[in-house]
């Protein structure tokens, strides 16, 4: 199992957002969490990525624990462990969060060069391959503001995928896309899964998740209803 979430609970200011959330994602599998806004989907994703601390529950990514609950106490991954865990996961944000002061190529190579210590020439080669595979070969030297929403998203995908994560998370990937680009997104995500990645998608777009996913789980009032 690539990602296992067990008994995840989270509240904000006394309000219970997540209540005993359990699910898992395997390698080569696309799992979608479907639900209305406010159902707690994004909080699940933020807990999985360690951006938010769970109150209770165990989250295990590729054998390493983001948090571990033994029934009495919960222990969290330290800074170093979290750093290691994050090397095996990627995330594509709803509003992409590209770095606006860098070209598309620099956005994609930045982590390769600085975090994964790949020589620059090699990083550029890897990034160029990834970007042309996503149909962005002619956008490599453009700035983020020059791109459409769909193109920005593909850059964000390239930025996350170029470091070869085992688990890739998408937060509302179709929220800003037209139907044609949404179709493309289905194709891109299926292809990533075929290559061996486990994929977790948060969405409220039912037709999209039905097309793209191996399993769809519904989130309602902080609980998962299969």
């Amino acid at each position: 199992m690539l990602l296992n979430v067990d008994g995840l609970c989270k509240s904000f200011k006394g309000k219970q957002i997540l209540n005993q959330v359990n699910f898992h994602v395997d390698q080569k599998e696309v799992v979608s969490l479907l639900g209305q806004s406010g159902a707690g989907k994004t909080t699940i994703l933020r807990c999985v990525t360690g951006l938010e601390k769970a109150d209770r529950g165990t989250i295990c990514v590729d054998g390493k624990y983001v948090c571990r609950d033994d029934g009495k106490n919960i222990t969290y991954a330290g800074k170093k462990e979290l750093y290691e865990i994050r090397r095996s996961m990627g995330m594509v944000f709803q509003s992409y969060h590209l770095f606006p002061h860098m070209t598309v190529l620099d956005n994609v190579t930045l982590a390769l060069i600085n975090v994964h210590k790949m020589p620059k020439e090699e990083a550029v080669k890897v990034a160029e391959e990834m970007l042309s595979h996503l149909g962005l070969e002619d956008k490599i030297h453009q700035m983020p503001y020059e791109l459409s929403g769909g193109q920005k998203q593909r850059v964000a995908i390239a930025r996350s995928c170029v470091v070869n994560p085992k688990l890739l998370c998408f937060d509302e990937p179709t929220a800003a896309l037209d139907p044609e680009t949404t179709k493309e997104m289905v194709h891109i995500i299926r292809e990533l899964a075929q290559k061996g990645m486990g994929i977790l998608i948060i969405s409220h777009d039912m037709p999209f998740v039905e097309k793209v996913s191996d399993r769809v789980l519904t989130v309602k009032q902080g609980m998962i209803i299969e």
Binding site: Y83, R86, M89, H97, F99, H101, V115, R159
Partner: peptide, 30 residues
Amino acid sequence: VEKGQIEAARLLGFTGWQMNVKIVWPQVIK
């Protein structure tokens, strides 16, 4: 500087120093 960019950088594995040098300060200067 958008908080989301900082989160994106953190998930990409950047250290605080790298984040400041590569992502935050170039934007702050501009």
